[in-house]
Design a protein around this nucleic acid. Structure first.
Lengths: 350, 350
DNA sequence: ACCAAAATGATAGGCGTCAATCATTTTGTT
DNA sequence: AACAAAATGATTGACGCCTATCATTTTGGT
């Protein structure tokens, strides 16, 4: 038997379609016992509203806007590519996605962009947050208009946005530390390198890293490189000279090219190297055996989650607890996910 | 401006709705130049057919059936749970999923079940394949009727099914080997344990494991346990006595309880332990520090992929190359995914 | 230029739901 | 019992597309 429709429900409940509809959509003005009968009928028949038909009737469309910084470094490029892919894939589901590029670290421009879309008919926005009064104000204005606001990768104050989707940086650092421990069961010396410990994400990763390292492992003073490749390169070269038995390097932030430069040519007897984010040149380095492990925050997954969340929230659903916390992926040379295809593939059928 | 409809396309192309429809759905009987004009208009407007509306009009529903063995061991339980979750989540997308339990390793029962659904109106089936003539015949009969057939976890002859979704066992073994290598940079002794090397999945994992281990690591003769916990326990105990410096254990198959029993109480100075499939008690063991790493084949992901694939294929789309190959996930204690909720959660709104 | 064949136009009913209107019946109150 | 308020029934036109039918126009061949 085919899926039951609301007509079937109404018949089963012994009420008219109109009443069943009033119950289903909570329009009010229905006697308690009728509500009960309709609910029972829904339960009994296993009725599930056909959301496609509903959205069609409602003329519902989902218009989402992503604000992603044009920051140097490949990670945000990956994120943007992921947005484009997902957007393309969901075009036929009444979902429209616009991607806006914001100059890196530019709170004013971000605020401008947010303010610009206050009066357009937007369902939800998703931004890499920057902490600034104007940004907060703009976000509040949007939410006051019923627009769903999500933060991605970088959060802002809890309560000022509808949800946050981002890496569990502590867990990421712990994962790195755990792997480093496995490789140093008899102790050893390791070097952590961060961009800037004032950034919460780097600080969290570092804390997680220290969490799990046993006392038998000596942790050198952390290098803060401001993610500048040259500084990273110098720090690594110096460390390898000063501590010939350097057993591991954990690169917490970016500036990978300097690290790779310092390591190049040393595929044998080099420290264990763990770093973050499987961007193209990191993938190459891993494949080539220049580094050992990559901790990834799955940008594709984050974008997919963001879209799902915005859709659910704008439909009035609640998100499950713990939603949005991205558990880090651990990649060695052999379990790399397939490289994402360049652009959205041309689909043969429309 | 809102999303263009087929009406807009027709207007833009300067033809009637009927002609635009004939082009879109390839009904034939359209002059080449009209086809061109419509195609151009589609391109120009960025028209994308609203598949929900289309499916609604067509009365299209997707009826899928999963045949999953009731095999001992928690893995297939997880797989079944994943089917139920996904099925529930997609109920409102005109997708119906039926889950059938097949006695483990029972090719005849599987064939029975497959034959039983030949004449029902099923869109696609997904089975954990067993190699048997009757199964092959039943599958062929289904495919002859236009039913999509997918294999899951265990494959059958290429060409006899539409797609296979399953773990890249070689990569899984390599990942285990790579991790083992990292933990044995100065050499060591490791013990592999498999259920049965005649099973291709176990053999592939073993081969992958050996692939990447350096010569400095000594691999003890592999134990074949037939996945019997007692045998595993004895083998591990013996190995730990015979080789006091045993540095690692790679458990390729099941029979984990025996392994855990042999290890219990030895959280300090025990071999590195790597095993497969993050089922409940393995998760506990990992959290408790009884084992070090788990290689997982992501049953949830496999089910989601299977549903996507069956839907695409039954819509006449092609699958991208490499589709269905599951890259293993590597879990340490700190990057465990959240435990899946017991059943489908009650949704507040219908 | 004639005629059949091919191409195109016009239109209708339906898919399951939403949102709205209006008519009718059932309550509860005094 | 009378009456307003509340509840219910009945119906309708979208939404974007599919499928079908029938009428009309254009084309190609001779």
């Amino acid at each position: 038997m085919r899926k039951p429709t609301l007509m079937d429900v109404a018949a089963k409940a012994g009420v008219s379609y109109a009443t069943a509809d009033r119950v289903l959509n909570q329009r009010g003005g229905v006697a308690a016992k009728s509500v009960q009968r309709v609910s029972d009928a829904i339960e009994l028949l296993g009725y599930k509203r056909d959301v496609s038909a509903a959205n069609l009737a409602r003329g519902r469309t989902y218009d989402f806007v992503f604000f992603i910084p044009s920051q140097a470094g490949a990670f945000f490029d990956e994120l943007r590519a992921a947005v484009r892919r997902e957007a393309h894939a969901r075009l036929s589901e009444r979902i429209t996605v616009t991607l806006k590029k914001i100059p890196a670290f530019d709170a004013e421009r971000l605020a401008d962009a947010l303010e610009n879309c206050v009066d357009s008919k937007i369902t939800g926005v998703c931004l890499v947050a920057i902490n600034s009064p104007r940004v907060r104000t703009a976000v509040n204005a949007l939410r006051a208009k019923g627009v769903i606001v999500l933060t991605l990768v970088a959060d802002m104050q809890v309560g000022s946005r509808d949800a946050y989707i981002g890496l569990d940086n502590r867990a990421a650092g712990q994962t790195a530390g755990r792997l480093m421990s496995l490789a140093h069961r008899n102790g050893g010396v390791v070097l952590p390198i961060a961009g800037n410990l004032d950034a919460v994400d780097h600080a969290d990763r570092y804390a997680g890293f220290l969490d799990v390292l046993p006392k038998t492992v000596t942790v050198l003073p952390i290098v803060q490189s401001a993610d500048r490749p040259d500084d990273v390169e110098n720090a690594v070269r110096n460390a390898m000279i000063t501590y010939p038995k350097l057993g591991g390097i954990y690169s917490i932030g970016a500036g990978h090219s300097g690290l790779l430069a310092a390591l190049s040519g040393r595929t044998k007897m080099r420290p264990i190297v763990i770093l973050h984010d499987l961007v193209a040149h990191v993938r190459t380095a891993l494949t080539d055996g220049l580094v050992d492990a990559v901790i990834d925050q799955k940008p594709d997954h984050q974008i997919a989650l963001a879209l799902d969340a915005m859709k659910s929230l704008s439909d009035g659903d609640q998100l499950p607890v713990g939603f949005g916390t991205i558990v880090p992926s651990l990649y060695l040379q052999d379990n790399l996910p397939p490289a994402s295809t360049g652009g959205p593939t041309e689909s043969p059928t429309l």
